[in-house]
């Protein structure tokens, strides 16, 4: 059984949602980013999304755009991101780790080589923003053949006609982007989220995680009552942006992660 499935099964038995955290690999530099990554599980992250930096993150808002710029300035690349996953796996065999980003760096690295190296490094899943199901042969199929989950983004524009296409062949979990927009902007009403989850559940048995615009423990807790997972990204990344030192960046992210985790864990009690 995959790490993602094991983790969601465990959480389901505990009757609580997953806290899914996003940070960009190499932000603000390799060592600091690795320290954050290693600290996340203990700070309460149930699933980790690790961003693969790209010069043109056209689905991201200002916070994650800046995270990409910081990471690239520190010379992060896909080889180093996979190295980071390997180093993380030396001390952690249970927390699922999903790489998230855009296709071009993977295309340049070579799909076949990337899939093999990602699997060997201990990557559990991929979220590639600019690869809709129309392009499944590009990466989704090779990744799944190697046992790596391919996680789909569904959005408020994914109607009942579109959903089966999006969900077919998706695995791991389903990421519901709760607002039409870029990362970090706006937030959906609880009513919207409730309806969206109900609709997705009619189409899939996979866990449904909600993201975009969730910033506080309170907000995370309310969403955790409605869905199988809560994704927080920009708010964590902002802690890196505002830190005065690398130690402060690590502590800032992990502190917020602990608070979010407390919110998610207490949500259904």
């Amino acid at each position: 059984m995959s790490r993602l499935q094991t983790r969601f099964d465990e959480l389901n038995q505990q009757n609580r949602a997953a806290l899914v955290t996003f940070v960009t690999a190499g932000d603000p530099d390799y060592a600091t980013s690795l320290a954050i990554l290693k600290g996340l599980p203990e700070a309460g992250a149930d699933v980790i999304e690790l961003g693969m930096p790209f010069t043109d993150p056209m689905a991201d808002g200002p916070a994650i755009q800046l995270a990409n710029i910081r990471a690239l300035a520190a010379r992060q690349n896909l080889t180093k991101t996979l190295q980071m996953v390997r180093e993380f796996r030396e001390g952690n065999q249970t927390t699922p780790l999903v790489l998230m980003g855009y296709f071009n760096p993977i295309h340049k690295y070579g799909v076949e080589r990337f899939v093999a190296d990602a699997r060997d490094a201990g990557v559990d899943g991929l979220i590639v923003v600019d690869l809709p199901p129309e392009h499944n042969p590009d990466l989704c199929h090779p990744a799944q053949a190697a046992g790596i989950d391919f996680i789909r983004l569904t959005t408020p524009t994914s109607d009942d006609k579109r959903l089966p296409t999006v969900l077919e062949g998706s695995s791991g979990f389903v990421y519901y982007v709760s607002v039409a927009g870029v990362t970090g902007a706006g937030s959906a009403t609880l009513e919207h989220i409730e309806q969206a989850v109900a609709r997705l559940k009619r189409h899939t048995a996979l866990p449904v995680c909600i993201g975009f615009g969730i910033r506080t423990p309170e907000h995370a807790a309310t969403v955790a009552r409605l869905a199988d997972g809560v994704v927080v990204g920009s708010a964590l990344v902002d802690r890196i942006a505002s830190a005065g030192s690398t130690d402060e960046a690590v502590e800032g992210v992990l502190d917020l992660c602990r608070e979010l985790s407390a919110g998610v864990r207490g949500a259904r009690q």
Binding site: M58, A59, F103, V129, D130, L131, P132, E134, H135, R152, L153, T154, T155, P156, T157, S158, D159, K161, R162, V166, V177, A180, G181
Partner: peptide
């Protein structure tokens, strides 16, 4: 039909935009 000229073209965009 999928927007390809040989190996070039396609529809590499975020899912939000696909229905549109």
């Amino acid at each position: 039909a999928t927007g390809l000229f040989g190996h070039f073209g396609g529809q590499y965009v975020a899912e939000t935009l696909m229905p549109l």
